[in-house]
């Protein structure tokens, strides 16, 4: 989903533009290090390929048609960093030439689709790419590469105050789920036949072949993106939980003491409070997943 200009709150697009600039800068350096010298032509032409492949649409169900998004496919062939750069280039051309997505909202779209989408699409392959679950990993990567950006985009719109009643969120999530499954199937089919054509085109997974880490990673992505959405729809969820557990007062003094001055000045805006709640939720999920992952790997290595 490409977010046009005029939908996101100023703090939201400005913040996402800055984080997109930083992440794309880092990823393009990694892509340059990972590829042979001066491979920009390859990345550009593969970006054009994704555009062209989107013209090949095929029937899905009755009366609707689907097409490739491509971030998981690119991640499995060019590597995640290069794929993120190609997706960024695609989003830039879509925003400039096709009016698909805004220019100020480019940061948001890049963070959702090029950075989060590509990394989510590659993660299962990174961990399961060499084992018996290889096909499942490619399929799951395709699914996540569509689902995670969709959740993030809905969360950003919701946190910016765009009205989105529950049924609308439900219906759009259902539609995204269908296209995510289609993306998974197409990615699986294309990677499978690419391997038959030329095995060198498909990247060999270099990750540690660990089922536990892969499962944890995929769950973390799902939880993080669904969590962002949930936090934006129900910003009081965490507070309610804290109230039920009876730690509300304590948590509030704990949070308020170091942040009191900022709270007065900055967190008076409702959308900022929502973003802060969402980010805090994400941070908690991240720390929990990291902790579990550390524990699991320690147990394995013993």
């Amino acid at each position: 989903m490409h977010i046009p200009d005029g939908f996101l709150a100023p703090g939201m697009w400005a913040g996402l533009d800055i984080s997109a600039a930083l992440s794309v800068g880092y990823l393009s350096r990694r892509a340059q290090a990972g590829l042979e010298e001066g491979q920009a032509p390859l990345l550009g032409v593969m970006g054009a390929f994704v555009f062209a492949a989107q013209m090949i649409n095929f029937p899905v169900g009755i009366g609707t048609s689907g097409h490739l998004v491509g971030s998981a496919l690119l991640a499995c062939t060019l590597g995640p960093a290069a794929a993120a750069v190609v997706m960024t280039a695609i989003l830039i051309v879509q925003a400039l030439v096709f009016q698909d997505g805004g220019v100020l909202a480019l940061g948001a779209n890049v963070m959702n689709m090029a950075v989060a989408g590509t990394l989510a699409g590659y993660l299962p392959y990174h961990y399961w790419g060499r084992g018996p679950w290889r096909r499942a990993a490619i399929f799951l990567g395709g699914v996540l590469s569509v689902l995670a950006p969709a959740c993030l985009a809905l969360a950003e719109l919701r946190a910016s105050g765009v009205p989105m009643p529950g049924p609308v969120v439900g219906v759009s999530l259902l539609l995204f789920l269908v296209s995510a499954l289609v993306e998974g199937l197409i990615t699986l089919a294309v990677v499978g036949s690419l391997e038959k054509m030329n095995a060198g085109w498909v990247r060999t997974s270099t990750g540690v072949n660990s089922r536990v880490r892969g499962a944890l990673g995929a769950t973390a992505i799902l939880l993080a993106s669904v969590g962002a959405l949930a936090a934006s729809i129900l910003p009081d969820g965490l507070e309610k939980l804290a109230g039920n557990l009876g730690i509300e007062g304590r948590a509030r003094t704990l949070l308020a003491t170091p942040l009191r001055d900022y709270e007065l000045r900055m967190i008076s805006e409702p959308w900022l409070r929502k973003i802060a709640a969402g980010l805090a939720g994400l941070a908690i999920i991240y720390v929990v997943c990291l902790g579990i992952c550390r524990l699991m790997t320690r147990k394995q290595s013993v």
Binding site: G44, G47, A48, F51, T88
Partner: peptide, 12 residues
Amino acid sequence: MVVTVVQFLYRY
């Protein structure tokens, strides 16, 4: 890097 990739993308 990104600008060069976009240049090639648009060209092809």
